[in-house]
Design a protein around this nucleic acid. Structure first.
Lengths: 212, 212
DNA sequence: TCAAAAGTGTTAAGTTTACACCCATGA
DNA sequence: TCATGGGTGTAAACTTAACACTTTTGA
């Protein structure tokens, strides 16, 4: 399996890449991946690889697609299931990243990657773009408490377009599961901005399709 | 890989099921599946299995998802990639179907299937429902020339709800790639109904998101 | 006192929905 | 001549998009 790990930092949507630590193709940029063990669920393999690289658990993950061309891997015949993860970059253990020669790259500046990994990134990005306006997806890349401006910047980075502030807030207001807390963020502005959080209890699965 | 094959007949959305021809679980209802060969692209394996069962080529196919729980298969460890196919039931070689102990079952009446095949059917049906209003998908289950009433019946069967005839036709009219021919179908009504066809040339990939 | 980000409503445009009758034909 | 399915338009409800100023506060 291979893992497309998205994060958000300084207004940019980023992907975690690593320099392949072994031959063949040692040093080339690629996604983080691994092999599914005989006694391991496919989904658990994805979680294991993610945890190895980031030290994080309980991360949002989703299957993206399976790539199975005969010669996609230059060595053995390998079929790979791609997973997408969304996480808060600031919670990642930087030391682990360095150990794995991993690096956060802006989505618009991803270099040539090993095998079909560029295709995987493109597909994951498309899925993310398609989902973010209608599904409870995105704030996984923000800290647990976030301001609406941060959330809007995130949406803009994912969609690659500017959004109208008032329309954005109107829609967020309709989403029950993004709730205002009584806490104020004083770091990002003099005036201070209300902090919001995601509330899973207010998200009824299958209900609540929402749009932006 | 396993294959969810959809068809449309007498107002009903149907899935092709087969009675498993070998032990273990011989005789139980299941999806048609097969193993990816060492020298075969994953997608080609899906096409091969579909052709074995139906005798058809050039059929619409799409990857649905990959199922990889440890014990999903009662025998060996098997990870399965599910594919969905859409085809015109009347073009299927009936003899081949009988040879494979295959049977078209209404989507609402699918019995208990082997392993996680019910989940696969549910996922494929969901994807089909999600796609049909926005993507050029559906008419693959009709003959090359079809009337708007046939098309509407198909949409209603997939979505599980009645649609308004005038609104339906208004929207179809906006879709460039569903074009009227000068041919008339005299079988379904005394008056005769205009026949339409799908025109790939008028479908620009990535453009034309359409809704119903 | 001013720079910087937060917060807040209204109107026009566009889209979606609901709805009912006449037409053409073969039996 | 009538039963059957084919074909057609409009108005109301709703949704989306465009738009600009006031507030708060720390430096």
């Amino acid at each position: 399996m291979d893992c497309i790990i998205f994060g958000f930092q300084r207004g940019e949507l980023k992907v975690l890449l690593q320099q392949r630590p072994f031959e063949p193709h040692k040093g080339e940029w690629s996604l983080m991946g691994g092999f599914v063990q005989e006694n391991e669920n496919l989904d658990d393999a994805a979680i294991r690889v993610l945890t190895e690289l980031t030290g994080l658990e309980g991360i949002y993950m989703r299957q993206i697609g399976t790539f199975g061309s005969i010669n996609r891997d230059s060595g053995d015949r390998v079929i790979s299931v791609a997973y997408m993860a969304l996480l808060d970059i600031d919670q990642v253990d930087d030391k682990l990243n360095r150990q794995h020669a991993a690096h956060w790259e802006n989505i618009g500046e991803v270099p040539h990657l090993l095998f079909d990994h560029n295709q995987m990134v493109a597909l994951a990005h498309r899925r993310l773009r398609e989902s973010i306006p209608t599904r409870p997806v995105g704030f996984q890349m923000l800290p647990p408490l976030f301001t609406l401006t941060q959330l809007q910047n995130l949406y803009e980075a994912v969609l690659g377009e500017k959004l109208d502030k008032r329309n954005f807030r109107k829609r967020i207001g309709e989403m029950r599961f993004i709730e205002k807390t009584d806490q104020i963020d004083k770091l990002s502005s003099r005036r201070g901005a209300a902090l919001y959080r995601f509330n899973y209890d207010h998200f009824v699965k299958g209900e609540q399709p929402f749009k932006l």
